[in-house]
Design a binder for these strands. Structure first.
Length: 1030
RNA sequence: GCCCGGGUGGUGGAACGGUAGACACGAAGGACUUAAAAUCCUUUGGCCAGAAACGGCUGUGCGGGUUCAAGUCCCGCCUCGGGUACCA
């Protein structure tokens, strides 16, 4: 073999390992570059060709940057806590650690074959105790943090306690309020200005309040016992224990974060999810809502990911308003984005779960309301979502008072109002909101019109262009100031908020959709919390207690009482045990991945999560490549944790990933065969093993059957023609048929043509469970269980469909097979050549030979017919230098703008040209090898060595582009008339625009195209184009 | 519904507002070969014309517009993919 990629790739992979070619050390003299891949969860299925797509892309950039003189950090590791290993453990009893380790070995083998420039000495595994020790440490840090709204930063709890000791909670401007508070025991929720009652802070009950101004004094604080203090502080911590409504997945036996639930089902496994009130750790990510939103502007991420995060955070500006309930002390608070539509309020609606519902309901309506709430509770989240069009509601008998007009407004409850958003109550403006309109229409509530000249008899008018009317001081205003330039109008919204604040009935408010993130999982295979309980009050483990690691359990299932699996561990199984008991929950999957990029900087550090000077050196990730599916999970949480670490001064930046690219999904191309079975009342045509005899139809016949151009007799005739009269006799009596399309394994299919022998072998194995005997069978024997009906060319053509790659669809392409067949360099180049990395595309090996041929062509440039290396030291010609430098220019430009696919074309063009020129000159081949080396490092190293270099090509400086070599004396100007190119004239590049114009006008063809007319204008773009306007 | 992306030959895809279809696959024809593989050469958006050629027309989802010039910018649609939703 001329280009022996197997031998070359093996040789260099081994050398790189031995020489530690890709080891990264901190080296202050060089600028750094941090190229990072989203580390994989090592699943049992191994890698398919979709996984390395992003890895190859980042590897190319890492290598390119190294050629450019950067000190590159390019690490890899494993996100090794996770559900599949645990599910497997539940089924088989095998410890998830064993499964995980086995899978990692397989991943590593697969990755190694592709020739990545990873520094494996920096590998991290989130499930290793020496890694998760620091995950636990960060948890402790967050636990010891509160959010100071004045500084807009997290601070250590000690600063808060100091404030309490000095002034109580005066001057404490902390984030403590979030949507969850409403879900707590309502008796604990204090109204505004309620006197502080330390008795409320009792065991097992956390004190939550909404407005903390002047609630307690330093004396109050000092009079509390330590447990009461502990409970009070829980309200301020950035991770806190609270009873909250959570997404409970009974099938998985655990709670899930909002981003792990899709369409009311678990993202993993698609199991139903229900709402359940549970005591859980939560992360107060809502404190960072605004900073997470603002931070997006400063980072170079795909716009759609930023948009997803913006929507997830869901900032909306408006006002919160308080409505008095007629004849009682209760206040109902609502949030609205259109406070200016206040005069259109004709009723209010509360969520059925709203804490005030039963308190305000009048006796007459009590039964109906309770009935309604009970019905609502019965429905799952999914039912409710599916039932959106079915409007339900119930009057409570109570009335609220309009804050401006003092009119009585009926208070209803309705499912369309969600307890989880805003305050769980709305002021209904049917004229301006379609949902309110629908509700009003259904229950015969008034729909007062508050818009000038707008017909609202059929539907609401939600736009912000409508001019307000019947709205007192807001008349003639719109939300946009001076919409049509008439007069000096102010915004109706602004005006409304001013008035609302003046009257003290509410204030302007920013509301966020995002909620705090549930941080507990009732699972085994995750980080144990460094937390123990005494009198049911949680305490953090001390440093001197040592690190708590996962205890052994007998089964990986919840206990009979529904406690998490860790509760099964015997006391002795715990390496740390304190207080009454340990925390039995574990952390969620996203804990370890929220900071792993920092650990790569200093993976072996036993004193801290990473030394500050190393963090300062490597700093932010310069290029992060991974899937877009983590937009609201990992990518949000790691930003959140980064900000906390930054607030505490552990790191010097508060955004982790400076630039990010999302690689598209690689889809599979499934192949199908068409099984045709003869049936009638006698049964089936039977083959051996008592299964049906299959006739597999080539796609053409299947299509004809489907389109009714063929019927059973045509098929019978085909069988007679192709398989003979004996076969025909067997089927003659059968009058009907079944037809099914079945998956064929794509390894048995090449360009849609089925390898029938391979298919038979597989089929036989399914039937007989033993494929070895297959080879003993002769053609007649084989024909007893399966017969192919070929097309006119004697081929069996398969059908196909583009689908997600999956084992069950037999369409998984592993990189290993391709590396074996074509080599890693070809695979690397081909994956890039497929198209833009960001785009999703079906996997198709059709083009791979083109890339492989390119590498062989390159090889032949410097090898003779007998495969002897041959290079020349002659000076290169002008043409050769031009080919090379055109490539240097384009490759450099394209890599700088991360256009991976076009680089491959450029290199192909260069090699095609050099082949034409029969160029084997060292001065050309050497720089060309460097250009190629990020894409095809093995062949580049091999040629580099043959060219006489003792050191790796990896550190060879990137070739410098010299414009001189591209300079041309003449340019072939395309001459167009009214934009249509007609002919070309070669003209000197130094010519002025006037001279070019003259030359064009003098050209004989110009007369032809002018056709006797006078040119109106002649545009000359130097070295580009000439356009004659007629 | 809303928010993002896309829509270019038979296919994957190129194209700072400046020669649309680079590069590659596939296909067709040819050379070499007993044959196949490999390799090499030619053609390849569509239509029309021709003995020939710097031949003509048309062409980037549809309809308008801006411009000397539009796949590219603007407006209005159609359509496919992804995300998201009683979010007040």
């Amino acid at each position: 073999m001329e280009y022996d990629f197997r031998q070359i790739e093996q040789k260099w992979q081994q050398r790189w390992r031995e020489r530690k070619t890709y080891k990264a050390i901190e080296y202050a003299e060089k600028p750094k570059f941090y190229a990072l891949d989203m580390f994989p969860y090592p699943s049992g299925a191994g890698l398919h060709v979709g996984h390395p797509l992003g890895y190859i892309a980042s590897d190319i950039i890492a290598r390119y940057k190294r050629h450019q003189g950067y000190n590159v950090l390019h690490p890899m590791g494993y996100d090794s806590f996770g559900l599949p290993a645990e599910q497997y453990a539940i089924q088989t009893g095998q410890h998830p650690e064993i499964t995980t380790k086995t899978n990692i070995v397989r991943y590593r083998e697969q990755l190694d074959k592709i020739g990545f420039a990873y520094d494996w000495d920096r590998e991290v595994r989130t499930s290793n105790p020496d890694y998760y020790k620091w995950t636990q440490w960060i948890f402790s840090l967050i636990y010891n943090s509160w959010f100071n709204k004045t500084t807009n930063k997290a601070e250590h709890m000690s600063t808060l306690i100091k404030k309490f000791e000095e002034n109580g909670n005066q001057n404490v401007n902390a984030v403590i309020e979030d949507d969850w508070f409403k879900n707590l025991n309502p008796t604990l929720s204090q109204g505004e200005g309620a006197p502080f009652d330390s008795n409320l802070v009792t065991n097992n009950q956390f004190f939550f309040g909404k407005d903390w101004q002047g609630d307690f004094t330093a004396t109050d604080w000092k009079s509390m016992n330590p447990e009461q203090q502990q409970l009070l502080l829980m309200n301020f911590r950035l991770t806190y224990l609270a009873d909250s409504w959570v997404n409970w997945c009974p099938a998985l036996g655990t709670v899930l974060a909002n981003d792990e639930v899709k369409d009311g089902k678990s993202e993993r496994g698609g199991h139903p999810v229900e709402q359940k009130l549970m005591r859980q750790w939560s992360m107060r990510i809502t404190a960072y809502a605004q900073r997470l939103l603002d931070g997006l502007d400063a980072i170079d991420w795909p716009e759609n990911i930023k948009e997803v995060q913006r929507n997830w955070i869901g900032r909306s500006e408006g006002a919160s308003l308080k409505f008095r309930v007629s004849g009682s002390e209760f206040l109902v608070e609502v949030f609205t984005t259109r406070p200016d539509t206040i005069f259109g309020v004709s009723f209010m609606t509360l969520a059925p779960e709203h804490e005030l519902v039963l308190q305000i309901t009048t006796p007459d309506y009590r039964e109906a309301v309770e009935q309604y709430i009970a019905n609502a509770k019965l429905k799952t989240e999914r039912d409710r979502q599916a039932d959106v069009k079915n409007i339900t509601g119930q009057f409570t008998g109570a009335y609220a008072l309009h804050p401006f007009t003092e009119e009585k407004i009926p208070i209803w409850i309705g499912e369309y109002v969600l307890i989880g958003y805003g305050t769980g109550a709305v002021m209904a403006v049917p004229a301006g909101d379609q949902r309110d309109w629908d509700f009003a229409a259904k229950f015969g509530l008034p729909i007062p019109n508050i818009f000038e000249g707008v017909d609202i008899s059929e539907k609401a008018e939600p736009s912000k262009d409508a001019v307000l009317a019947n709205s007192d001081f807001l008349n003639n205003l719109t939300p946009h100031p001076s919409p049509k330039g008439e007069g000096n109008k102010s915004s109706s919204i602004k005006r409304a908020i001013e008035e609302i604040e003046t009257r003290g009935i509410g204030q302007g408010k920013v509301n966020y959709r995002m909620r705090d993130a549930v941080f507990s999982r009732q699972r085994y295979w995750g980080e144990p919390f460094p937390v123990y309980y005494k009198n049911d009050i949680p305490y953090l483990l001390d440093e001197k207690d040592g690190q708590v690691t996962l205890p052994e359990v007998d089964k990986y299932l919840p206990t009979e009482d529904g406690e998490p699996p860790l509760a099964r561990a015997k006391r002795e199984a715990w390496n740390v045990w304190k207080g009454d008991r340990m925390e039995y929950n574990t952390m969620p999957g996203w804990a370890g991945s929220s900071w792993y990029f920092l650990r790569y900087m200093d993976p072996k550090n036993e004193k801290t999560f990473a030394a500050r000077e190393k963090i300062d050196y490597w700093n932010q990730v310069d290029l992060y490549i991974g899937g877009a599916e983590h937009a609201t999970g990992h990518l949000l949480y790691s930003r959140f944790w980064t900000k906390i670490l930054a607030d505490h001064g552990y790191i010097g930046f508060d955004e982790p990933f400076k630039k990010m690219i999302n690689q598209g999904m690689i889809l599979g191309r499934s192949s199908f065969v068409y099984r045709f079975t003869f049936v009638d009342d006698k049964g089936l045509v039977l083959g051996p093993y008592n299964s049906s005899k299959d006739y597999l139809l080539s796609k053409e016949y299947y299509d004809k059957l489907n389109e009714h151009h063929y019927d059973i007799d045509d098929i019978k005739e085909l069988i007679r023609l192709q398989l003979g009269n004996d076969e025909f006799q067997r089927i003659m009596d059968f009058g009907s048929y079944n037809i099914q399309s079945l998956y064929a394994d794509i390894s048995e299919v090449n360009n849609d043509i089925l390898n029938t022998r391979a298919y038979e072998r597989w089929f036989f194995k399914q039937l007989a469970g033993d494929e070895n005997r297959f080879d003993e069978l002769d053609g007649v024997e084989r024909g007893r269980f399966i017969s192919f009906i070929f097309n006119d060319e004697g081929k069996y053509i398969c059908g196909w469909e583009i689908e997600k790659m999956s084992k069950s669809k037999y369409n998984v392409q592993t990189p290993d097979e391709l590396v074996e067949k074509f080599g890693a360099d070809t695979l690397r180049m081909y994956e890039m050549f497929l198209g833009p990395v960001e785009q999703s595309k079906p996997w198709d090996t059709k083009g791979i030979s083109g890339v492989h041929n390119f590498l062989r062509k390159l090889w032949r440039l410097s090898h003779d017919k007998d495969n002897n290396f041959s290079e020349s030291d002659d000076a290169p010609t002008k043409a050769e230098l031009k080919s090379l430098h055109a490539a240097i220019k384009k490759v450099t430009e394209d890599l700088n703008r991360l256009s991976w696919n076009t680089v491959v074309s450029t290199l192909m063009i260069c090699v095609n040209e050099l082949t034409e020129q029969k160029c084997n000159k060292r001065q050309i081949i050497e720089p060309l090898c460097i250009l190629l080396s990020p894409y095809a490092p093995h062949i580049a190293e091999e040629l580099w060595e043959k060219l006489g270099h003792a050191t790796s090509i990896t550190d060879a400086p990137w070739p410098v582009f010299n414009e001189e070599f591209l300079k041309e004396d003449a340019f072939d100007y395309p001459v167009s008339f009214n934009g249509k190119t007609r002919f070309f004239i070669p003209l000197g590049v130094e010519l002025s625009q006037d001279e070019v114009t003259k030359a064009v006008l003098a050209h004989e063809l110009t007369f032809k195209y002018l056709d006797g007319k006078e040119p109106k204008k002649i545009i000359v773009v130097p070295k580009r184009i000439v356009n004659v306007v007629v």
